[in-house]
Design a protein around this nucleic acid. Structure first.
Lengths: 218, 218
DNA sequence: TCAGAACCGTACCGTACGGTACTTAAGCGG
DNA sequence: CCGCTTAAGTACCGTACGGTACGGTTCTGA
């Protein structure tokens, strides 16, 4: 796994990583080491001393952004239907907020580009800190729901992937390809609720009608 | 719309576009005009004469690949439940096959990269020929299903996006980020069937039990 | 047969950028 | 006050690549 714990960068180094994020987000031209040095008021030599090379700088930026974004976990014991729904919906809101953020879009673009050019494992790092990290955090919740008789499924991974699909739909690919989608907080909350509702419709245990039967998604 | 009709390239020019695809797929290093000219046995000058510049060459490649990939449509009249399900499943298989193909992955990566760097509308072109094109082809089918009382939904776009999510889940982002996923024909068929089944569970009209109630997705 | 177009192969140019080296200045322990 | 470390700022180098120019060759049509 590439998801290390909290990176132990100094504040000065964190300023550099934030400069990288700013430059990636403002996009325009590609990220150059000279631009990073200029923006962070440091020398290129220092950059290379701290981060090795350009890829190391990008990898550190990915990990730094990921470490800032992890939300709190849940408490698995004494999980009733509404708690499960609220926890799932909270995850959903958090995840949608993350993947629609300009930072996440920019870093995912970098990861995709690097995955294409073959060299460096930056795509893998983005995957580990993005898609796989959220999976590892949601799956225990799903299994707790199953243990408490609230959900009915066999394979946790498959079930999570369905939830992921219901939630993300075409959002990530459209944003990565430059589509300007409105992603207000209200819209995110609505989409999270809809995805959660649909998820319960598909996987809610049949003996928990108060959760599964609410209204059809329109 | 950027989805023009069949491009009217000569065979010689098509050979060039296929060379671009081969180079993009074999990835390794970034696509250079010199490499294209070498692979296609033509001169760089001819490349620029035919396609304007590097971006024009890439845009032409995207459109050429898209024009090759469009599958046949369906017949909307006299649509019964099994026909609707089969048509949806056929779309699903086709779409999954396309987005997991090496050509599609490579072109989507190019589109994402260009969308990030701001210049050129290649990301938009990929979107128009990918996500939006499949939407425009599936939505009439959904509406025909609704008109025949087989589906129950309000907004066609929202409904299609849910189908899209159930089908694609995390596949596209994982492939774009370099995850090596097994995508055998059998697996694609299974995923298409599962997505279609789940879609009917969510949107199937309640007075069509033979379609909606089959078995829970496990 | 000849003129002209199309086009291949290659050489060339300018620039952008990753990475390195060097100079200077600031902080700091002794 | 002095040596040492850190790092800013800048100049520099090598290379890769987009785009152009040009000579030579094949094709085409009269």
């Amino acid at each position: 796994m590439e998801t290390a714990g909290e990176p132990d960068w100094t504040q000065r180094q964190i300023d550099v990583l934030d400069a990288v994020l700013d430059l990636l987000v403002s996009g325009g031209d590609a990220l150059t080491t000279a631009a990073v040095a200029r923006k962070a008021n440091c020398s290129k030599e220092t950059l290379y001393k701290w981060f090795g090379d350009r890829d190391g700088l990008l990898a550190a930026t990915v990990r730094w952004q990921a470490s800032r974004v992890r939300a709190g976990n849940f408490d698995a014991q004494h999980l009733d239907a509404s708690q499960l729904r609220e926890s799932l919906e909270a995850f959903a809101v958090n995840w949608l907020t993350v993947i629609t953020s300009r930072n996440s879009i920019a870093l995912n673009r970098v990861g995709v580009s690097h995955a294409g050019s073959g060299k460096s494992n930056l795509g893998r790092i983005v995957l580990e800190n993005g898609r796989f990290a959220i999976g590892e955090r949601v799956k225990p919740l799903l299994e707790a729901g199953r243990a408490n008789g609230l959900l009915d499924f066999d394979d946790t991974e498959t079930t999570f992937r369905t939830f992921f699909g219901l939630l993300g739909r075409d959002v990530q690919i459209r944003l990565l390809l430059g589509d300007r989608m409105e992603t207000t907080d209200a819209e995110i909350a609505r989409d999270a609720a809809r995805a959660t509702q649909q998820f319960f419709a598909l996987y809610g245990a049949s003996d928990a009608p108060s959760v599964t039967a609410e209204h059809k998604p329109h």
